[in-house]
């Protein structure tokens, strides 16, 4: 798989470098842009960034592994983020995650985001989603689901599985909040 950055993006990034006194400072912006474009930061993307900024790949790689928001693997079409922080944890988010993982055949003990082999779902246990009042909460792609129950989780999964081939994050998933009340 060859790695190539489209010319307009490269031009934008080249221009971006000039904003900083030291080239290296642009690293994070580069990585964000590349993740936005490719969906994840591949190893080639790291090497490309390092070459652009006159760094060693390991320097960029340190950044990528430090920030959890950078993905090193492609994500599933439906990205389920289950909150693990206190309120949600008390409201049973661990069981919720367990349910997602079990349904999808994923390892519920794994620390990292888990993606199904068919690439449809990614389940991730994340820190606070800032909706503690309505715990437990789940963020499915861009949509926040509050007071998620087991039935609501089922619904998320069934709706997600219909999203075959659809562009990620474009189709809103609705209806979970009603079920929670």
């Amino acid at each position: 798989m060859s790695f190539s950055v489209p010319a307009p993006l490269e031009a934008r990034l080249d221009e971006l470098v000039t904003h900083y006194p030291v080239k290296r400072s642009a690293s994070l912006m580069f990585l964000h842009a590349l993740q936005e474009h490719f969906g994840y930061v591949s190893r080639e993307a790291v090497e490309w960034t390092a070459a652009k900024l006159g760094l060693q790949p390991i320097n960029v790689y340190e950044l990528v592994t430090f920030y959890p928001m950078f993905r090193q693997e492609p994500l599933g079409t439906t990205h389920v983020k289950v909150c693990r922080t206190l309120s949600c944890a008390l409201a049973g988010s661990a069981a919720l995650r367990e349910q997602f993982c079990k349904k999808l055949g994923l390892d519920s003990h794994a620390h990292a985001p888990q993606t199904t082999p068919d690439g449809k779902f990614t389940v991730e246990f994340v820190e606070c989603l800032a909706a503690c009042g309505s715990a437990p909460v789940v963020l499915v792609n861009e949509d926040l689901h509050e007071r998620v129950t087991a039935q609501a989780a089922e619904k998320i999964l069934s709706e997600g599985s219909r999203l075959e081939g659809a562009a990620k994050g474009k189709t809103p998933v609705k209806g979970a909040s009603g079920a929670a009340s």
């Binding site: 760094l55 060693q56 390991i58 320097n59 790689y61 340190e62 592994t65 920030y67 959890p68």
Partner: peptide
């Protein structure tokens, strides 16, 4: 030879 770094968090 800037070969080593600390990865992960």
């Amino acid at each position: 030879d800037d070969a080593l770094g600390i990865v992960n968090r």
